[in-house]
């Protein structure tokens, strides 16, 4: 198999399979839990503004409350760095947008290349520090298992392979044109597809579970008149 064949595979069957697993798996993870159902709360509510409570829960918990900032500040700040960095790289880099556009027809304005390149360094370092922190902190070590380390791996790998593939892309080339180095690009795509395949099964599903969990707790607390 040549590098070009590998790229065809990554852009074709592998991509579609990974997307199928991503969407079907994620949908199942949510649906299978939703179908467990719950009993209606018979206690008289103090407030019926449950949606407002859910939204406060969802957005309010994006920033740690000042009272709870003591301890683990490093983990929190580091988390912000790689989450923001990954978002900048994944959604702001022009080739990624062109890739999505080819697939779906959806496009948006890219960030300047230098912004994305600048984001790579801190993100790379932050992810390495996150791993180091997880391996050395007694609490995180106790809490961690295969899912934690494999999830880290499938997030880090696309960043690594993307850095290797960056030379193969030329902004001057027409969309869809053959890349200069198809091998690294194919590997980069395959690493992203690995992430897609793993996401519904492990802790990376917090990409959507976090919002559901926060919303539910927010609504439940709001019902009692407590802080969501």
């Amino acid at each position: 198999m040549t590098a070009a064949d590998l790229l065809d595979f990554a852009r074709g069957p592998a991509l579609w399979f990974s997307l199928l697993v991503l969407f079907a798996g994620s949908a199942w993870r949510v649906a299978a839990t939703f179908r467990l159902g719950t009993t209606p709360d018979l206690a008289e509510p103090r407030s019926t503004r449950l949606l407002a409570g859910a939204l406060r829960g969802i957005f309010g918990r994006m920033i740690t409350k000042p009272e709870f900032r003591r301890g683990r500040g490093f983990g929190a700040v580091n988390g912000y760095i790689y989450h923001i960095g990954l978002a900048v790289i994944a959604f702001g880099f022009l080739p990624h947008i062109l890739f999505v556009e080819r697939l779906t027809g959806l496009a948006w304005t890219s960030l300047p290349g230098w912004v994305v390149y600048l984001a790579v360094g801190p993100t790379f370092i932050a992810l390495l520090l996150a791993l180091l922190y997880r391996m050395t902190d007694p609490v995180l070590r106790l809490l961690s298992g295969f899912d934690d380390f494999f999830s880290w791996f499938v997030v880090f790998l696309p960043l690594l392979t993307g850095m290797a593939a960056i030379d193969g892309w030329s902004p001057a080339a027409a969309p869809g044109a053959a890349p200069i180095y198809p091998g690294p690009l194919a590997i980069h795509l395959l690493s992203v597809e690995l992430l897609f395949i793993w996401l519904p099964f492990g802790k990376l599903a917090h990409a959507f579970l976090a919002f559901i969990s926060r919303g539910m707790t927010g609504a439940s607390m709001a019902r009692k008149g407590a802080v969501p």
Binding site: T33, G75, V139, L143, L209, A210, S213, T217
Partner: peptide, 15 residues
């Protein structure tokens, strides 16, 4: 439903 979503959402951050 609610408890399961919450059990499932932990990212083991230790906070």
């Amino acid at each position: 439903r609610d408890a399961a979503f919450q059990l499932d959402a932990c990212v083991h951050c230790g906070r």
